[in-house]
């Protein structure tokens, strides 16, 4: 991870968030409110993307912040980026809820054409700093259909088997395409 300069607003934000999480680990509710104030927009974006509907996303958000309350002690400020930790926890918790509710998405997926002829991805225009930018830049470098499969796995909790069924491609084909795309992604991210 790059060395952070202390006057960079993003790293100040991280430091404040790390401090707040340490407070949450001590079961300080004002600290959780601080975490909420700083992160609810971003984490809501994840839940909304996963559930596609405000009411479900807000129900999941309740669960997410209760999980943060219970697990803040396992966040290590010396080693981790708090925003990454929170986003990963949120995504994983939301996918768990989605799966437990028996609503794992099954709608067919039509893979995008390989040619990059669409408008620029809205997500790429809403970038934040640092790592966020890297993954979004690197994923744009993949074939559109591969990027689409990886995004679907991330946002809809689809496994290889789910994807194969939804795309109507053999499991082996989906696996080898995604694995090739992941190696390409790693090369770009490293």
């Amino acid at each position: 991870m790059a060395i952070e300069s202390t006057d960079n607003p993003a790293s100040l934000e991280r430091a404040a968030l790390s401090r707040a999480l340490v407070g949450v680990a001590r079961q300080d509710r004002a600290a959780l409110q601080e975490v909420y104030r700083r992160t609810s927009r971003k984490l809501f974006g994840i839940c909304l993307r996963i559930f596609g509907e405000r009411a479900d996303a807000e129900d999941a958000m309740q669960d997410v912040y209760i999980t943060i309350w219970n697990r803040a002690g396992s966040f290590d400020p010396a080693r981790g980026n708090p925003i990454t930790w929170l986003a990963t926890l949120t995504r994983n918790r939301a996918i768990d809820i989605l799966r437990a509710s028996g609503r794992r998405p099954t709608a067919p997926i039509e893979l995008a054409a390989e040619v990059a002829d669409e408008r620029p991805d809205a997500e790429a225009q809403l970038l934040e700093q640092g790592e966020d930018a890297r993954i979004n830049h690197c994923i744009e470098g993949l074939a559109k259909s591969d990027a689409q499969m990886i995004r679907t796995a991330f946002f809809e909790g689809s496994t290889y088997a789910d994807l194969a069924a939804r795309i109507s491609l053999p499991l082996g084909t989906v696996k080898s395409r995604i694995r090739r795309a992941l190696l390409k992604l790693r090369e770009c991210l490293s």
Partner: peptide, 23 residues
């Protein structure tokens, strides 16, 4: 995980004001 977490960009919408009191 850290890299994939970056896929989750804000969507420009905020949760309702009642959410924090419920939490």
């Amino acid at each position: 995980e850290a890299h994939f977490a970056g896929l989750a960009a804000p969507v420009g919408l905020e949760p309702s004001a009642q959410l924090w009191p419920r939490i």
